[in-house]
Amino acid sequence: MSDKKPKRREFLFTASYAVGAVGVGAVTWPLIDQMNPDASVKALASTEVDVSSVKPGNTITVLWRGKPVFIRRRTQEEISEARSVKMEDLIHPEKDEDRAKNPEWLVMLGVCTHLGCVPLNDKGDYDGWFCPCHGSHYDTSGRIRKGPAPLNMEVPKYEFVNANTIKIG
């Protein structure tokens, strides 16, 4: 069989299946992709927040893209605590200097990287955040220190528009 040339009918079958598969794929893709974020959801890309009223040691929570964002004005102790940690001690090593460009302000998604709960402020073994759902502890830089979460809380893209306003996104 193998040394025979493929017959015209076999070629037609294979070609028909191939065209059919491409057709089914082309029809299926829009049906799958319609579930991805739509244009109106994507349009809500950035939020501006006035942080002038936040005192040192306080955190405000704002909603960005349906998710809470923690904006914490850190105290001097918290900053030095976050910056003195050795990289070897971290589960997901990141320097505090990279997470908080302006050391006084920590801006990050208030979403536990385990299964998406909102961690609680000023709780846990590392003076930062504690997730009540499955017991993840974060430090004063929002880095995971203990528990099932694999990553540090995510720092979104943000910038200071002026001294009192942060633009997230």
């Binding site: 799958i32 579930m35 991805n36 974020p37 739509d38 959801v41 893209r65 349906g66 998710k67």
Partner: peptide, 17 residues
């Protein structure tokens, strides 16, 4: 997860589907 949600968090698109 984004595809399941139809957004960046659980929201209206998630509810309707």
């Amino acid at each position: 997860v984004t595809w399941l949600w139809g957004g960046y968090s659980v929201d209206n698109p998630t509810l309707t589907r």
